[in-house]
C-alpha cells in the first residue's frame, strides 16, 4: 500500500518547524507504524537527507518511549494501543496521514517528533514513591493486601509514562499520569503513611510544570495505551482535598523547567 504523510519537521529545540510531505511506497499491512517510518527514513538517509527523528525503544508497547499524534489522535486510531503496536493494516491504501509531536507547554519539542518529557520524572520525584530504603523491608507476606486493592493498584500502575494523556487532553493536563501514580500507591497499605504528602506535592509539581487543569473531557483515558481510568483522577482530587484540609504545610514546589 501507499500513503501520503505530512510530517512535522523541526531541526531543533525552540527552532521553527513545518509540515513536510512524504510519499511512502509499497508499505506492508503487517508493518507497525514505526516500521513504516523506518522505511521512509531509510529512503531519506539513502538520499543523504536527515531522517525523521522519533523516540522509540522497546517496540512492544511497554517502555513508553514512542508517542506520535496521528491524524489528530494520540497514538493513532487503535484504542489502548501505543504507536509502536499500531499496525498499518488499520490504514487504507492511499490514506493521508498527518504526523505531529505531542504538543504541550510541559513537553517542549526537541526535534521533529521527539519531545522532552522529563517533567514527568520531576512529578514522580516530588512524591511518586514509597520511602522504603533498601534493607529495611518487612517480610513480604507480613502485610496482606486484599486482592481487589492489589488488582486496582496494578491497573493504575500499568501507566507507561508515554504522555499521550497530556497530548490528547484539550487542556494539556497531566492529571491522568499523576493520578495513576497517586492511585497505585494510595491503594496499597504500604503507601498510606505518605499518602497525603504525596498528593499535595505531586499535584503542586504537576502544576509548576505548566500542565493544565482537568475539565473531565475524558480524552486522556481514550488515548491511554494502558486503559488507565479517569476514576483515578477523582481519587487524586479526593486525596488532595483531604490532604489540603488536614495539613498546614504548604506543598513546596521544586523548580520547574
Amino acid at each position: 500500500m501507499n500513503l501520503i504523510l505530512h510530517v512535522w519537521r523541526q531541526p531543533g529545540p525552540d527552532r521553527g518547524g513545518e509540515f513536510v510531505r512524504y510519499d511512502a511506497h509499497d508499505i506492508s499491512p503487517e508493518m507497525s507504524f514505526l516500521e513504516m517510518l523506518d522505511v521512509v527514513n531509510e529512503d531519506l538517509v539513502g538520499r543523504g537527507e536527515r531522517p525523521i527523528a522519533f523516540d522509540h525503544d522497546c517496540r512492544e508497547g511497554i517502555c513508553g518511549s514512542c508517542g506520535i499524534m496521528i491524524n489528530g489522535i494520540a497514538h493513532g486510531p487503535m484504542q489502548a494501543t501505543a504507536t509502536c503496536q499500531l499496525h498499518m493494516r488499520h490504514f487504507a491504501d492511499g490514506a493521508v496521514v498527518w504526523i505531529e509531536p505531542w504538543r504541550a507547554r510541559g513537553f517542549p519539542v526537541i526535534t521533529d517528533l521527539v519531545v522532552n518529557r522529563s517533567a514527568f520524572d520531576r512529578i514522580i520525584a516530588a512524591g511518586g514513591f514509597i520511602s522504603a530504603n533498601t534493607g529495611n523491608a518487612p517480610e513480604a507476606n507480613s502485610v496482606p493486601v486484599p486482592k481487589q486493592n492489589a488488582d486496582d493498584a496494578m491497573d493504575a500502575a500499568a501507566c507507561i509514562g508515554c504522555g499521550a494523556c497530556v497530548a490528547a487532553c484539550p487542556n494539556g493536563s497531566a492529571s491522568l499520569f499523576t493520578a495513576a501514580k497517586i492511585s497505585h500507591l494510595g491503594l496499597l497499605p504500604q503507601g498510606q503513611p505518605e499518602r497525603q504528602r504525596r498528593a499535595l506535592r505531586m499535584v503542586a509539581q504537576m502544576e509548576a510544570e505548566g500542565f493544565g487543569p482537568c475539565s473531565w473531557f475524558g480524552e486522556c483515558q481514550e488515548a491511554c495505551p494502558k486503559d488507565i481510568s479517569i476514576d483515578t483522577i477523582a481519587r487524586m482530587n479526593h486525596d488532595f482535598v483531604r490532604a489540603a484540609a488536614a495539613t498546614r504545610i504548604e506543598a513546596p514546589v521544586r523548580g520547574s523547567a
Partner: peptide, 19 residues
C-alpha cells in the same frame, strides 16, 4: 486561562474521540 497556557501551540489536526 491555565488550560490555554498549557498548550501554546495548537495541533494542525485534532480529533476529539469521546469528549
Amino acid at each position: 486561562r491555565r488550560a490555554g497556557a498549557a498548550r501554546p501551540r495548537e495541533y494542525r489536526e485534532r480529533r476529539p474521540q469521546v469528549s
